[in-house]
Amino acid sequence: MHLYEHHISTKKAQQMSKITNMIREDIEKSGVSDGIVVVYSPHTTAGFTINENADPDVVHDMLCGFEKAFPTKTGYYQHMEGNSHAHIKTTCVGPSQTLILNQGELILGIWQDVYFCEFDGPRNRRFYVKIIEG
């Protein structure tokens, strides 16, 4: 099994950053051709999603949708840090994603990428990629 640690600096309060190529580089380094790839964030206000990579408006619309569903500022959050919205958004996308690795390639749809989702930035973050052969 192979474990890789990555560092990512986010520039905005909320953003989605493509990390698929980082994962592909890890796969190449590992030499594994078949198995499972898990990406994991140890942060409670950042996570991952797999979604469209062709039209940047999709990322914009997703962030707007998250904001509408879980607004940054409301009168009912009680968490003292003021980032309850980020905790809720991360709960929705999840702290990890599991991908299938087949013949050295990630199985993703033609329009899909893996995104690191920042909901409480800007920050310096880290995430892990675990490649399990099998």
Rank of each mutant, 00 (worst) to 15 (best):
M1F: 11
M1G: 14
H2A: 13
H2Y: 15
H6L: 15
T10L: 13
T10V: 10
K11E: 13
K12P: 00
A13R: 12
A13H: 12
A13E: 13
Q15I: 10
K18W: 04
I19V: 15
M22W: 10
R24Y: 10
D26G: 09
K29P: 02
K29W: 08
G31N: 07
S33M: 11
S33Q: 13
S33A: 07
I36H: 07
I36R: 06
V38I: 14
S41M: 06
S41C: 14
S41D: 03
T44H: 06
T44F: 02
T44W: 10
A46W: 01
F48E: 01
T49E: 06
I50E: 05
N51M: 06
E52W: 01
E52L: 00
A54V: 07
P56K: 03
P56V: 01
D57C: 04
V59S: 03
H60F: 09
D61V: 06
L63T: 01
L63F: 01
L63E: 05
C64Y: 06
A69S: 11
F70H: 04
F70N: 00
T72H: 12
K73N: 14
K73I: 09
T74S: 07
T74R: 04
Y76C: 04
Y77D: 01
Q78N: 10
H79N: 11
M80A: 12
M80H: 10
E81C: 07
E81T: 02
G82T: 02
G82D: 09
N83S: 12
I88C: 04
T91Q: 07
C92F: 15
V93D: 03
G94P: 11
G94W: 12
G94F: 13
P95R: 12
Q97E: 15
Q97W: 08
T98N: 12
T98Y: 14
L99T: 05
L101T: 05
L101F: 12
L101G: 07
Q103L: 13
G104E: 12
L106S: 08
G109L: 11
I110S: 14
D113T: 09
D113A: 15
Y115W: 05
C117Y: 02
E118Q: 05
E118S: 07
E118D: 08
F119Q: 00
G121P: 08
G121F: 06
G121N: 05
P122T: 01
P122D: 00
N124S: 14
R126L: 07
R126T: 14
F127K: 03
Y128A: 09
Y128G: 06
K130M: 13
I131G: 05
E133L: 08
